[in-house]
């Protein structure tokens, strides 16, 4: 069977699907048409065709995958294939920023084993916590809403960012404003568009009544208002467990962050803050 055996409409769909992707309605149309295995095979032939063009057009050298991601992949592979997966070319780099107490393992030299051991221990903690929770409550914490799993992942990502230590990494202690006990720090990289807030002793919020919201002041933006960095909650349970790590999710790209402010807002958060209640802020000097 060659492509002349398929309708023009179906071929058009396959070409769109393999180049830029289908809209929801086009995807539905594809699924209705692609019930025959031959149609599915033809879809994959076009995927391979696009992959061939892609390679032919890739004339720059490939970008080197960051070592911390290679390490994560080896770790995932080790779990999936049931053993150590060793790579001759992957040598983890020395973490340049001390990891959180809950993530730190031992005081030995920073070696590949130490790095992998840290990831393994964090996973083991999560698995153990998950198992206990499952036994006690019947609740599976590895569902999408799992606090344990998501917190661990966030901790891993924070560790990954600080270990990578990009040149523009911002690592600032919070200055308490309207919450005298609150402490912690904010970590952000403009180049990676990635960052995390770490909180200790901040007041837990009642999500039904109020929300925490981060605002990022970007020096390169010709706008009066700061950029919304995401709405979040801090639960008492999380605080009891220790520090709370929250990923930063700006709704616009950040060119050069110079200040971070956390405000308390009415649910579900606001577009423009009146800045009446500011628990903490941090500014680049």
């Amino acid at each position: 069977m060659n492509n002349q055996d398929f309708s023009e409409e179906f071929v058009d769909l396959l070409i769109l699907r393999s180049t830029v992707g289908l809209s929801e309605s086009e995807q539905l149309e594809f699924e209705q048409l692609a019930t025959d295995p031959e149609y599915l095979k033809e879809a994959e032939r076009f995927d391979l065709t696009a992959a061939a063009f892609e390679q032919a057009l890739q004339f720059d050298e490939f970008e080197e995958m960051p070592r911390e991601i290679q390490d994560l992949l080896l770790f995932s592979a080790g779990d999936m294939f049931g053993g150590d997966v060793e790579s001759e070319s992957v040598t983890p780099i020395e973490p340049k920023v001390e990891l959180a107490d809950r993530s730190r393992v031992g005081d030995g030299p920073s070696t590949r084993e130490a790095s992998r051991f840290r990831w393994r221990e964090m996973t083991a903690i999560a698995v153990a916590a998950a198992s206990l929770l499952l036994v006690v409550t019947g609740f599976n914490p590895f569902s999408e809403t799992s606090d344990v799993a998501s917190q661990l992942t966030t901790a891993q990502r924070l560790a990954s960012l600080t270990t990578a230590n990009p040149a523009d990494l911002i690592d600032l202690e919070w200055t308490p404003v309207h919450d005298a006990d609150a402490s912690g720090k904010v970590v952000w990289s403009d180049s990676r568009q990635e960052g995390y807030m770490v909180f200790e002793n901040i007041k837990a919020n009642d999500p039904a009544l109020e929300k925490y919201q981060l605002w990022i002041f970007d020096t390169d933006k010709a706008q009066k208002e700061p950029i919304d960095g995401g709405v979040f909650d801090i639960s008492a349970a999380e605080l009891e467990a220790g520090r709370v790590i929250v990923p930063i999710k700006p709704n616009l790209p950040i060119s050069k962050a110079v200040q971070f402010a956390v405000t308390v807002e009415k649910p579900p958060g606001v577009v423009v803050s009146k800045r009446e209640k500011i628990p903490v802020l941090a500014a680049v000097e």
């Binding site: 892609e54 490939f62 970008e63 997966v85 790579s87 001759e88 990502r157 990289s189 568009q193 990923p247």
Partner: peptide
């Protein structure tokens, strides 16, 4: 598995970086 990662890591990473704006 490790060799597969070594062989294709940069191909995959280059594709991903071209299509994802943020590191996470």
């Amino acid at each position: 598995v490790a060799k597969c990662l070594d062989r294709y890591k940069n191909l995959v990473w280059s594709l991903v970086r071209r299509n994802c704006t943020d590191f996470q």
